[in-house]
Simulated scan of single mutants.
Amino acid sequence: MLRKNYMGMIIRWRQSLNVLPARGLSKQVQKTDEDEDDTKPSMSHPTRHAFQKLAFGDTLLSQTMMKVKSKKTREKSGLIMLEGRRIIQEAIDAGCDPTSIFFSRTEDLDMLTLPQKTLKIYKTPYNEMKVWSNLTTPPGIIGIFKKPPPIPETRSSLSLTLICDQIREPGNLGSMIRNCAGVGVRRVILTPGCTDLWDDKVLRGSAGAHFKVRVHSDVDWPEIEDLVKAENSKLLLAAAETSKNGFGRLLPVIPYSTCDYSTSHNFLVIGGETESLSNAAYEVAARTNGSILTIPLANEVESLNSVSAACVIMFEIRKQLKSQPC
């Protein structure tokens, strides 16, 4: 009896502190913002765009994502996926053709300036979108676009082409494309050994630079050699001085800062972190009277990573070409 009264006192005390839920509500589960019914438009954020509401468990998003999540399916469908409001808007501003938009918050949708065309827009539960995102905190908006062709070359671009050879780390390739856009190169060429241009990690690393610089994918070395000869130019290989390649031993080695980049169009070749430059790169360089460019380093550091090496040399080329009289 004494124990029963004591337990009753504890329960009444905890209820007075709002520790225990009221009777009849103990089995209810409180919803968070993410668990809210995303199939209903928010009354505080009415959208100006017409959209279709997808219920939780609807397979439309998963069916669409299956068409864009791998290089093979992207090539088959001709579609790409862009995740995040900023990169979606940059693609639209660049003239890319969206086919559908999936979003979870109406305010994100309303911040987009969409093209004046028939566009399929779907409001999707946030937890459904999380399943298909590689990000820790997904932005909650996805754009599906037709794969765009390379953007046109601009007259203001530098007399420089960057050739990415066997760059297989997506983040490195994305950063490389971003740096090329910042430098203002004429074009970027990817050899068949590179990772896919439209991989989601490449897209994130480039921060929208895909739509600011001309990029050609899967260009083989015979085609590159023809292009170099058509420009009456030569290959410049960013490589260590001690090359094990037989053709590499025949090439002159020049510190990058002493090379004159104003005599012809520059074709700079950067290799991957692990694979480095391919044998084909050395062979084409030997047949076009090319050179090996080195970057002198201190403290017995052997080499820079591919992104850093490309940046150092490209900005030296930019400095020399911009200092030339018009």
Rank of each mutant, 00 (worst) to 15 (best):
K117F: 00
T118V: 02
L119D: 00
L119M: 08
L119R: 05
K120R: 13
K120S: 07
K123E: 07
P125E: 09
E128V: 00
E128P: 04
M129V: 00
K130C: 14
W132N: 12
W132S: 11
S133M: 07
N134K: 12
L135E: 14
T136W: 10
T137W: 09
T137S: 14
P138N: 09
P138E: 08
I141S: 03
I142W: 07
G143V: 12
G143D: 04
I144S: 00
F145W: 04
F145K: 00
K147L: 11
K147R: 12
P148V: 00
P148W: 00
P148S: 01
P149W: 04
P150K: 06
R155G: 14
S156P: 04
S156H: 15
S157E: 15
L158Q: 07
L162Y: 03
C164R: 13
Q166R: 15
Q166T: 07
I167P: 00
R168G: 02
R168L: 09
R168H: 13
E169M: 10
E169I: 15
E169S: 08
P170Q: 13
P170R: 13
P170G: 08
G171V: 12
N172M: 03
G174M: 05
G174N: 05
G174H: 05
G174I: 09
S175F: 11
S175I: 03
M176D: 01
I177Q: 02
R178I: 04
R178H: 05
N179Y: 09
A181Y: 03
G182V: 06
V185I: 05
R186I: 01
R187W: 06
V188C: 02
I189F: 04
I189K: 07
L190I: 05
G193C: 04
C194I: 03
C194L: 09
C194E: 06
C194F: 10
T195D: 08
T195N: 10
W198V: 05
W198N: 03
D199T: 01
D200S: 14
K201T: 11
V202G: 01
L203R: 10
L203T: 15
R204V: 12
G205M: 07
G205L: 05
G205R: 04
S206N: 04
S206A: 11
S206P: 00
A207T: 14
G208M: 02
A209L: 05
A209S: 13
H210Y: 09
H210N: 12
H210V: 12
H210F: 06
H210D: 03
K212M: 10
R214C: 10
R214L: 03
R214H: 07
R214S: 14
S217E: 13
S217D: 10
V219W: 10
V219N: 09
V219L: 13
D220G: 07
W221H: 09
I224V: 08
I224Y: 08
D226A: 15
L227T: 14
V228K: 06
V228D: 01
A230I: 02
E231F: 11
E231T: 02
E231M: 11
S233V: 00
